[in-house]
Amino acid sequence: MAHLLNSSFLVSSVPSSPLLVRSLKRRCPCLQSRAALTSTPPVTLRYNKLGDSDLLISEVTLGTMTWGNQNTEKEAHEQLSYAFDNGVNILDTAEMYPVPVSKEKQGNTDRIINPWLKTRARDQVIIATKVSGFSTNETSLRDNPKGTRVDAANIKESVEKSLKRLGTDYVDLLQIHWPDRYVPLFGEYLYDPSKWRESVPFSEQLQALHDVIKEGKVRYIGVSNETSFGVMEFVHLATTLGLPKIISIQNSYSLIVRCAFEGNLVEVCQPQCCNVGLLAYSPLAGGILSGKYLDKDSQEAKRGRLGLFPGYMSRYLKSQANEAVKKYAEVARRHGLTPAQLALAFVRDQSFVTSSIIGATTMEQLKENLSTYTLPRPLPAEIMSEIHDIFSTHRDPALI
Rank of each mutant, 00 (worst) to 15 (best):
Leu5Ile: 10
Ser12His: 00
Leu19Ser: 14
Thr38Ala: 14
Leu45Arg: 07
Leu45Asn: 07
Asn48Trp: 12
Leu56Tyr: 04
Leu56Lys: 06
Ile57Ser: 01
Val60Lys: 02
Thr61Arg: 00
Leu62Arg: 01
Leu62Thr: 00
Met65Cys: 09
Asn71Cys: 15
Lys74Tyr: 07
Ile90Met: 02
Asp110Val: 11
Arg111Leu: 11
Gln124Met: 10
Ile126Val: 14
Ala128Ile: 06
Lys130Ala: 07
Ser132Phe: 14
Gly133His: 07
Ser135Glu: 03
Glu138Ala: 15
Pro145Arg: 02
Arg149Asp: 01
Leu163Asn: 01
Gly167Pro: 05
Asp172Glu: 03
Leu174Val: 14
Asp180Ile: 09
Arg181Cys: 07
Ser199Phe: 04
His210Tyr: 09
Asp211Glu: 14
Ser228Cys: 08
Gly230Glu: 02
His236Val: 02
Asn251Pro: 03
Leu255Glu: 03
Ala260Leu: 06
Glu262Gln: 07
Gly263Phe: 02
Leu265Asp: 01
Cys273Ala: 14
Asn275Leu: 10
Val276Tyr: 06
Gly286Ile: 13
Leu289Trp: 00
Lys296Ile: 14
Ser298Leu: 09
Gly304Asn: 12
Gly307Ala: 12
Phe309Arg: 02
Tyr312Ala: 09
Tyr312Trp: 12
Ala321Gly: 15
Asn322Phe: 11
Lys327Glu: 15
Phe346Gly: 05
Ser356Gly: 05
Gly359Thr: 09
Thr361Ser: 09
Thr362Cys: 00
Asn369Met: 04
Asn369Asp: 13
Thr372Lys: 03
Pro380Asn: 09
Ser385Phe: 02
Ile390Val: 15
Ile390Phe: 08
Pro397Leu: 13
Ala398Arg: 06
